[in-house]
Design a protein around this nucleic acid. Structure first.
Lengths: 337, 337
DNA sequence: CGCCCGATTTGTATCGATAAAAACTTGTAT
DNA sequence: ATACAAGTTTTTATCGATACAAATCGGGCG
């Protein structure tokens, strides 16, 4: 079942069929009808592999995220699929396992031309990998800027959001605010370090001291990690009345960890996260958070990618673009009372 | 940068390069070395579109799920990606939006030969669509059996699991057990109706009457739907001391809805879900559930698909296979006390 | 009536890899 | 030395669609 069969059935050439399929102008409507009928009769479908080979386009973009089963990334993926569909693009999802190698693998796959472009949610790649991003297909990085990277970049307002989250706790009466983050990893600039900065700034602005005993690291941004960190914090003896968690997923784990120790939220301790994942609206207590406007981020990431896809051959000298999303504070029960 | 360039650089023919790439035997190791060096020097990558066209295989399987951002499907997708990787297969995720059209679209895409096979998590397709599944590439259905469908099928032990869940509530002392499910849709066999059957059986076995006022429908299997149903139930005046929810996602919404009405879980009402999603272990209270062994289901689905991929040309007369997973009851706080 | 122009249709070459089979090597048995 | 088998490499054709360019058609106009 090829375009040739359709051509034969419709009594035209293969090229005419191709023109019909691709909505080219200059096809008599009577001919178009005949071709369309033949296509329907034979139940013909284009062979995308052949088309890809000839055109060099696949109509698919790659999305590489650490893990699809983490709510944040699942929701991000859903948004990106929606945004890509607006441009008639399919999305193939890669899991990088939050590792540098996984992210490099994702880059390598695009080089196989499986995808026309790649949206890469980085966690593991660092400034040292800048060179690896100098490839001949479009990339958009979702996450922290890779220093001087040669690619477009969509980021959250990490510092400002974290500052607002912490300020929100202060406003609600907290004075001894714990931070649960990824721990310092040298001088690296990442989600954790940026949000730590925002936390520090907010404390400073309010004239509150930063107590190192209240900074609890968790290696993984998971519910398990959050629960463990919260229990450790509660067991540590240091007094605290608020917790800012590096992500909502961690925060949900923290709510659980505090419940394990009989700490009442928000009465004794108030909790706020970052990301505004859907689950936060349904936890008990419901979770206050920073909403970085995911649909906007997803839409922007796809738009940036698409604009470079279009500009394939010609003037590829478009300046690297940087987009930082906006945010809003979503106050729910966990900081109420 | 093609295989020809590599051949030239290595001083061999394109076929020899192809043999090296595909690990064919009968390549002198000295020649292999030379080719590999040329590949590395030129940083060559195969053009998968060309390979796909020639071989008719894409190395990618499709996974069509209602929505990736629902925890159950996200976790399922993650498991399937892992299982597929064991067979060197990539997974492309489609969202069907839980609609019949979306599921049909996913089928159509495979017909475009974008994928070698399809794992389809059905919600909308019914017995009437049996014919549409008679296609020339392998399909595995994840979900309820489409009556007499011509394809392999992986299911959960819905009736037995639901019965066990309800029995668990009874065992913990519940006597007036509510059900939150998808509502009856005619005689259709689906997740909702099967789990309803299990619920009914368990009540019967325990000699408890089925009170229609305790059967609360929710159109969507979402947290929002669960919360709404729970609030309606609590407001309805009918007395109840247990709730069996059709899925964990709904159950988490139910926990929220009950909290909204000041109903204490598990003191006043015990709650159990179905699926054992990761979030259930971290909710407050943590959620009891039925664990249908997702890794086993995902692995089986991929294995079934792969076994048909291998048998492409030859004897395709392998009987349709049916796999029903096992389950276990996971008791947590929501049915404790 | 012949010419020209735009609209419509078609022929040809090609994208890059690999299947199939032919051709060439080498080693070994006769 | 000769033939043959096994190992190694190359030649040729092809997968199915589309870019490009050329051919054909159908009025309108001088």
């Amino acid at each position: 079942m090829t375009i040739q069969d359709v051509a034969r059935a419709a009594g035209v050439s293969a090229m005419t069929v191709s023109h019909v399929i691709n909505d080219h102008p200059h096809v008599k409507s009577e001919t178009r009808e005949r071709v369309l009928r033949a296509i329907a009769d034979l139940d013909y479908r284009v062979n995308v592999a052949a088309r890809n080979l000839r055109t060099g386009r696949t109509g698919t973009i790659g999305l590489a995220v650490p893990e699809v089963d983490r709510p944040y990334y699942g929701q991000l993926a859903a948004e990106i699929i929606i945004a890509a569909a607006r441009h008639n693009l399919k999305v193939a999802i890669e899991q990088t396992g939050a590792s540098r190698e996984g992210e490099l693998d994702a880059l390598a796959l695009s080089r196989n031309r499986l995808y026309d472009g790649l949206i890469l949610s980085t966690v593991g790649l660092g400034p040292a990998d800048t060179d690896l991003l100098k490839v001949d297909y479009p990339i958009v990085i979702l996450g922290e800027r890779i220093f001087d990277g040669p690619v477009d970049h969509v980021a959250m307002p990490n510092v400002e959001g974290a500052r607002a989250a912490t300020a929100h706790l202060i406003e609600r009466g907290c004075r001894r605010i714990a931070l649960i983050d990824g721990g310092a990893q040298g001088d690296e600039v990442n989600v954790s370090s940026l949000r730590y900065t925002g936390y520090r700034q907010a404390l400073e602005e309010a004239g509150l001291a930063l107590d190192p005993r209240l900074v609890a690291p968790t290696e993984q941004f998971t519910m398990a990690g959050g629960a463990t960190a919260a229990r450790r914090l509660a067991d540590g003896g240091a007094d605290f009345d608020g917790v800012f968690c590096v992500t909502d997923t961690v925060a949900i784990g923290v709510l659980r960890g505090l419940a394990d120790r009989g700490v009442r939220v928000p009465d004794q301790v108030k909790v706020i996260g970052f990301d505004n994942i859907a689950e936060g609206a349904y936890s008990v207590p419901s979770l206050s958070s920073i909403d970085p406007d995911h649909p906007l981020m997803a839409g922007t990431a796809v738009d940036l990618l698409v604009s470079r896809l279009a500009r394939k051959g010609k003037q590829k000298q478009v300046a690297v673009r940087e987009f930082v999303s906006r945010f809003s504070v979503v106050a729910r029960e966990s900081t109420g009372g």
